[in-house]
Every structure is written in C-alpha cells, then in structure tokens.
C-alpha cells in the first residue's frame, strides 16, 4: 500500500506521524511525506514574496526540507519501509489531491486540523477538502491535543 502523509508542522500533523509510527504496516507498504508550501495570502497583510518560494533555494523550501528531514528521521527510527519526501508549492488541497493521484496513493493519513494560531475552521477545511476530493482512502487522525481548541 502507498501511503501519502501531508505534513504542515502542526500538532495535528504530529498526531498523524505518531499514528504512522505506532500502527502496524506491511513490509512492502511505502510512504511519501509531503509538505506543501502555500503562497502567503495577501489578505492577512503580508505581500507574496516570490523569491522565498523558489524551489531549491527559497527560504520556504529550505525550511520545508528541514521539517521533512526531521519527520523522516523520526519515522525511520521505527520503520524499515521505503519512505520518501517531497516539497511542493501551491494551494494545499489541490496539490495534495493531485499528488495522491499522480503517486497512486492508496491512503492519505493526515491530522484533523492544520497549523495553530489561524482560524481553526479555515485550516480544518484543507483536511475536509482533501477528504472529499481524494482519489483514495483517507485516515483523519484526531488526538486529544489537536481537537482540544474548541
């Protein structure tokens, strides 16, 4: 089975990583960790800075790569399966769904809400949209911590 794990660095995506670490998998299951770099929306007052999003050198990509490497190391400490990482840019929902299609994912495992500090509904909507549009099965991991903010 091919398992896609979108990571955004939030508590909830940590819950999804824990789920992957603790649950049993088949030896031939493979995982793809993905972080989507989204252009900063102008409506929160910060202008879109194209340079930050240049693949390979942009600050956003460097940070994403660092995040993925940390999670990768974490997963590799318990799993011997094939695990790859990928950073992509664009709107999170569309990118995740497209990648699931391209990579032929059988399952997407993600947290129930996204990054903290923003509107909870807005970011939970990425999860909801992915769930609705995904071409494959989806596991939405809720943990006590990440659903407490109600």
């Amino acid at each position: 089975m091919r398992v896609l794990i979108p990571i955004d660095g939030s508590e909830c995506s940590k819950a999804a990583v824990d789920y992957i670490k603790e649950r049993p998998w088949n030896k031939d299951d493979s995982f793809l960790l993905v972080h989507v770099v989204e252009p900063i929306p102008v409506d929160i007052g910060i202008a879109y800075i194209p340079a930050a999003y240049t693949p390979d050198e942009g600050a956003a990509f460097t940070q994403s790569e660092a995040l993925l490497q940390v999670v990768l190391g974490d997963l590799k400490s318990v799993l011997t399966n094939q695990i790859d990482t990928k950073v992509i840019a664009g709107p999170a929902k569309a990118e995740i769904v497209d990648l699931a299609q391209e990579w032929k994912a059988d399952l997407i495992v993600m947290g129930s809400h996204g990054r903290k500090g923003f509107n909870r509904l807005l970011l939970g909507s990425v999860t909801e949209d992915v769930m609705k549009s995904a071409p494959c099965s989806v596991t939405i991991v809720k943990s006590a911590h990440c659903s407490k903010s109600e």
Binding site: D106, M131, P135, K142
Partner: peptide
C-alpha cells in the same frame, strides 16, 4: 462520512476505492 468525520470524538478512516491484496 463527512458528518461523521466532523463530529467524531476519534480518528476516522474513510475507505474509498476497492482495496485488494493485489495492490499490496
């Protein structure tokens, strides 16, 4: 499925397409 997901007190897995051992 959507409604269950929204109100569920726990994790939810939506199983979408035919799943076979062959795919494994």
């Amino acid at each position: 499925a959507e409604e269950v997901l929204r109100d569920a007190p726990c994790s939810v897995q939506i199983v979408r397409r035919k799943f076979s051992r062959r795919e494994d």
